[in-house]
Design a protein around this nucleic acid. Sequence first.
DNA 1: ACGCTTGTTGAGAACGGTTGTCAAAGATCG
DNA 2: CGATCTTTGACAACCGTTCTCAACAAGCGT
Lengths: 132, 132
Amino acid sequence: MAARMTRQRTAVVEALDELADFRSAQQLHENLRARGESVGLATVYRALQALADASEVDVLRAEDGESLYRRCARREHHHHLVCRSCGRTVEIDGPTVEAWASKVAAAQGFDDIEHTVELWGTCADCRAAASK
Amino acid sequence: MAARMTRQRTAVVEALDELADFRSAQQLHENLRARGESVGLATVYRALQALADASEVDVLRAEDGESLYRRCARREHHHHLVCRSCGRTVEIDGPTVEAWASKVAAAQGFDDIEHTVELWGTCADCRAAASK
DNA sequence: ACGCTTGTTGAGAACGGTTGTCAAAGATCG
DNA sequence: CGATCTTTGACAACCGTTCTCAACAAGCGT
């Protein structure tokens, strides 16, 4: 169970660090190959999974169900405002939302509460590009 | 483009009405077969899709990415508190959340904002059953 | 009631993202 | 260096969902 530091894992982390926004496993894989790093797709998935388990990366689901990964600045719980078309991401937190969520859930007798709060939109740049 | 009322579509709507909680397309399909209604899986998917487009049912993604459907009481925008293990659902709305979401997004220059706010937990019954 | 037209159905193939398989490769330690 | 034991990667398998297309049936006009 000792996590070994391999060339591939390092490469995945590096790729994540360079790309500041949410990316799919496949995008990262392509990115790695493009720069000459030979890494298997399955390995990319495994690395991302491990990083997610260790809370080193945030995972979120695109509207079509694909998983997107990102290395976030803050490790504490937070939410995201993501551009639908380019993936550009802004970290946000909503203290009022947290409080609201747990209060509502508790009032209904629910336990082990987890909440999903994500904002999707089109960023200024993409909007400009679309109406070119 | 005229929507025809077929036996299959009626069956899907009926099944949804009986099952008050969020169910997957496959669960609904099984449910229909179990009661003798012969309906193809693809048809169930199509019916659910059409209903979702018409805002007749709410769709949400389970943690594993599967789509879950439910006929909600209110047609207006609202959120859900869903039991992870039995699918039991409580409709909730959070006026404060709505306001917060659009304000935050606008402040970042984002447009076309959409937000996902769902609460997952374990309902009282399932908690009791688990610690039997 | 009876065709006709046209949307709908269903079985199975296809698809796309993700995970499993397993022999070969390589990281770590003594 | 050698032994050990995790990791890798090409490919198959999976699973939910969508597509294909010939057979079918709603709804409409007569």
